[in-house]
Every structure is written in C-alpha cells, then in structure tokens.
Design a protein around this nucleic acid. Structure first.
Lengths: 154, 154
DNA sequence: TATTGTTATACTCTATAACTATA
DNA sequence: TATAGTTATAGAGTATAACAATA
C-alpha cells in the first residue's frame, strides 16, 4: 500500500545517493590504491583471512578477478597468500600489517573529507541526516537478507 | 565548532551510503550498458548536446576517455557526433532517440528496484529518509560549488 | 567426479604522450 | 602558437572458457 510513496522517495533519494557516493570516492587524490583494492582490504580487515572463493563471493566478483586483484595487492605488500593446511587446493588471503595501516589511513581520510562537507550544513540538516541513519542501516541489512519467496514477509 | 559531530556522523553515514549505492548499482543484471556509458547518457539527457571537452570535464575524465566511451555509444546507436558549425575542430555529442529511450528505461528500472527495498521499511523509517532528502540535496550542491578560499563562507 | 584456483584471452574504462587539424 | 580532439600504448578491473591440482 505504501508502494507509491516508496517509488517517489526512490526517485528523490537514489540520484542523491549516487552523487554523494561519487563526491566521496572519485575526488580522492594521492591514494594509489583503487576502489577494488581498498574494498578487498576493508573486507579482509573486517573478516580476517578468507579463502579466495569466499573473497570473490563477498566482493561480488568471479574468481579470476579475485585472483588478479589479490596478485596486485600481494605485489604491493598489502595482503599475503597463505596455504590452507586443511585443503591443499585452497588459498587463504590475509591482510598484512602494512595493508592494515594503509586502509585505516584511507578510511580516516575519507571520513574526514566527508565530515568537512557535513560541517558546512546547518545543525538542523545534520540532525535530520543523523535521524535517518538507522533507516539506512536497515536498508543495507535488507540487501543481505536472502530473497527467497519464503522471505517476502521480512 | 560542530566539527566533532560531523566526523561522527561521517563515520556512520559514509559506509552506509557506499553500501546503498552498491546495492542499487552492482546487482543490475540484464543491462548491457556500463556505468560510464549510462553516466554519459544521463548527462546528455539532462544538458543536451555537449562538446567532447565539456563532456569530459562533467564526467570527470580525460578527453581520450571521453572519446572512447562516446565511440562505443555511437557504435551502439545511443549517441551521435555532430560537427560544430562554429569551430571545425570541435565535435558536438548528442543523445539519439534510442539512447534517450534506453536511459529512461534504465533509470525507471533502478528507481523501481530501490523502491522495492524502501517498501520493506516501516512508515516511520521512510518518513525519516524523506525528511533527510533536502539535507542530502544541500550536500550534493556543496560539492559543485567552487572551492576557492573566497568561498569558504558558503 | 567434483571442487578450488589459475591461466589464457578479450573487452571496458582509465591515463599519459604524441599526433592532426583548426583557430 | 594555442586549442580541440584523436590515436597509440599501457595498466586495472571485469568476464568466460579451458586447464591444473587436490578432494
């Protein structure tokens, strides 16, 4: 019944989200690592060492892609490949101390840059954004939830 | 003085924006055109025909990149190159009827998919998101504004 | 035989450097 | 000489198909 309101909200909100995303991402000079690379690093930071296949699934890419991104990160000394003792076919990919340090810096820098923009809003505007955070978090959680027909009631 | 609150808000909001962006973008099967291509099409849709160099600036890419993206779109019949009568060095790039139709469809599809997610939130959550829209719009506008020292007071 | 990864190949997006054509 | 754009070349990210090694 609220489908109409949702579509209208989608029309307003979606382009804005795209723009804000690009603001924070695209103009980030001085960082040598790419979006794909920083995504892998944050994943490994959050979840610890992962098998190549798991990493590919989480990143939403195919295995050959994961292999090549990891290969470049290894060359940069930011991740390492570890043989899996349980299964000799498998490879564990882990972040190195240097990778860890670098991604922390990058995240801090992005947050700082976004914060500068937020600081230029009014107190009221910031309050409204803050109030919307839990709803956004819920939205993000929805995406992870399985989309089986059985889960339609979620 | 509100710098601290901004940084905290940035920490909460920025990762969520990234995730939502990816939800809407990445899992969009059945669309042959790439992100760079759809971005060019929406730009041409919004602003009409542009010179190659203007397009490159707006898209935030170098001219050779614009040239190649446009070349592929021309091959797909979605944009056309028009000689500029005023300056024979220049090229005007315009969207075709087919390009126009295709981008409208794509935008509608993305909005619909995002709306489905929004529809799964509570009325209250949607209300909070709606209330945050003007602040987000302001945020986006800030990025466009020049960053000269003189404009610091904006 | 099935699973885990890698290699081979190809396409898009991106950049810089060198070039052409016009102002 | 300066500007608008293209071509040449290279590297990153992505994919599919074919392969190797292990379970």
């Amino acid at each position: 019944m609220s489908a109409h309101g949702s579509l209208e909200l989608s029309r307003q909100l979606r382009p804005l989200l795209t723009r804000v995303y690009q603001m924070v991402r695209r103009r980030s000079p001085g960082w040598d690592i790419s979006a794909a690379q920083s995504s892998v690093l944050t994943t490994l930071m959050d979840r610890g060492a992962l098998r190549m296949g798991e990493l590919a699934v989480i990143e939403g890419v195919r295995m050959p892609t994961a292999t090549s991104v990891v290969a470049r990160l290894v060359k940069l000394g930011l991740v390492e490949r570890i043989a899996d003792p349980q299964d000799r076919r498998a490879v564990l990919v882990g972040i190195t101390a240097r990778g860890s340090a670098q991604i922390s810096e990058l995240v801090a820098e992005r947050n700082a840059r976004f914060a500068e923009l937020l600081a230029r809003l009014s107190d009221e505007e910031r309050r409204l954004l803050r109030a919307a955070v839990p709803a956004m978090a819920h939205l993000v959680a929805l995406d992870i939830a399985p989309k089986d027909p059985a889960d339609t009631e979620l």
